[in-house]
Design a protein around this nucleic acid. Structure first.
Length: 400
DNA sequence: TCTGGGGTCCTAGGACCC
DNA sequence: TCTGGGGTCCTAGGACCC
């Protein structure tokens, strides 16, 4: 018997959640009903659209547009800054409301999740009944709207929740694939982005239905191993049915766009130090160690470059992360002035297989590890970044 | 005042080993 | 004189997602 999977997706999440925050603070009107977007800080060169109201959408404003573009499309546009603490708070409220019904929930992002309805289906009249129940409860109790997609696998549930918005429940059963999904433009298929859609259109594939019926062998010439997966998806076939209640992160990264392009090595080092602190703290919070450290750069031409190093011994010590990332940066021999810099930790393990090397001073390592612990404790007690080590600069305020 | 930040997965090529 | 091939690990970059 098929499973019944639901996908719950908050409509204009960041905008809705900021709207609620403002109403709470006594704002007289609801920014959801106006020409408003949530956008980054232009003076810090982060001026893009993170979320938009429905009226803005109608004018053609898209997520990730520059605010400059957005204002061209809508001169009376109002821009509000994101508040990630608020978003986290609302996200928690949403998922805890849903958890009242079942533990079988996979959090997919801050504003989306999958829910396995199969084990609880006998408690309700129908899946539609249940979907409307949770949708309306969220609207009435939490104050924002969601879309709910119902299907027999995650892919199709997600496709369904995207059909028409806001505040809607949609189904996409097997016998509805042809009528509801095939007419959609190929760009609407989950996993098909700009590059792939361009390639597909050159092959005459313009709708999901076109792809569903396309010759596999011919598609393989252009998409190699991805061809079968693509055609399967267009036919609503997705073997990933597992609801992952919690999945271990594969990597931890922090990156920051600099408010001006930077060439000086000393300045780069300062950013690397702050980033090391950030990723190190997050790593230690999870009781993990990293065995790969990568430094990521974006130059003024928006070209991304990265360099990584596999460590003999996994680490979670800020000073080690810093020293290694400095070395990696030096090896990159970067000559361009850079716009963004980041550190990514990969190959996360729960223990460090530390081998004593001849040149290593274990006392130092213990000292550094102890220092991290003290700093972490004080920061968690009195608010993050109460303590900053010398030379550290503010790089990021996001709590996640 | 033009273009974020945090992720995952895939691919291709090189090194190295047997 | 000609010139294996399979497997694994590592790295850099690309594509895509929210």
């Amino acid at each position: 018997m098929d499973k019944i999977i639901m996908h719950i997706d908050v409509n204009n999440a960041f905008l809705s959640w900021t709207a609620l925050e403002l109403l709470d603070k006594g704002y007289k009107y609801d920014i959801r009903n106006s020409y408003a977007v949530i956008g980054g800080d232009e003076s810090k060169r982060r001026g893009i659209v993170l979320a938009k109201s429905n009226s803005c959408k109608k004018l053609g404003i898209k997520t990730a547009d520059t605010l400059f573009e957005a204002r061209n499309k809508c001169p009376s546009l109002k821009v509000y800054p994101p508040n990630y603490y608020q978003y986290q708070k609302m996200s928690k409220k949403l998922f805890s409301l849903l958890s009242e019904y079942t533990p079988d929930i996979e959090v997919f992002s801050i504003d989306e999740c999958f829910l396995d309805y199969t084990p609880i289906k006998n408690r309700y009249k129908s899946e539609l009944d249940f979907a409307y129940l949770i949708k309306d409860r969220i609207k009435n109790e939490l104050g924002f709207t969601v879309n709910v997609g119902i299907s027999y696998n995650k892919l199709c549930a997600k496709m369904a929740s995207d059909f028409s918005k806001p505040d809607k429940v949609h189904t996409l059963y097997k016998d509805e694939i042809k009528s509801k999904m095939w007419p959609l433009p190929i760009d609407d298929l989950f996993g098909v982005g700009k590059k792939s859609s361009l390639k597909l259109k050159k092959l005459g594939i313009n709708t999901i239905g076109d792809l569903a019926c396309f010759d596999v062998a011919k598609l393989q010439i252009y998409f190699k191993n991805q061809a079968i997966r693509l055609i399967n998806m267009a036919n609503g076939i997705d073997d990933d049915l597992i609801i992952r209640k919690y999945s271990e992160p594969k990597g931890i990264s922090n990156e920051t766009t600099l408010d001006h392009d930077v060439v000086s090595k000393e300045e780069v080092y300062k950013y690397l130090f702050s980033l090391s602190e950030l990723v190190g703290l997050r790593l230690r919070k999870q009781n993990k160690y990293a065995s790969v450290i990568a430094v990521v750069l974006k130059d003024k031409y928006f070209r991304r470059k990265s360099h990584q190093k596999k460590l003999d011994n996994a680490t979670n010590i800020t000073s080690e992360i810093y020293e290694i990332s400095k070395k990696i940066y030096d090896e990159m021999d970067n000559k361009d002035s850079i716009r963004l810099i980041g550190i990514r930790l990969d190959g996360l393990t729960t223990n460090t297989f530390h081998q004593i090397s001849m040149f290593e001073n274990l006392d130092d390592r213990d000292k550094d590890s102890g220092l991290d612990k003290v700093v972490d404790e004080i920061n968690s007690k009195y608010g993050s970044r109460t303590i900053k080590k010398a030379g550290s600069i503010e790089v990021n305020k996001k709590p996640f």
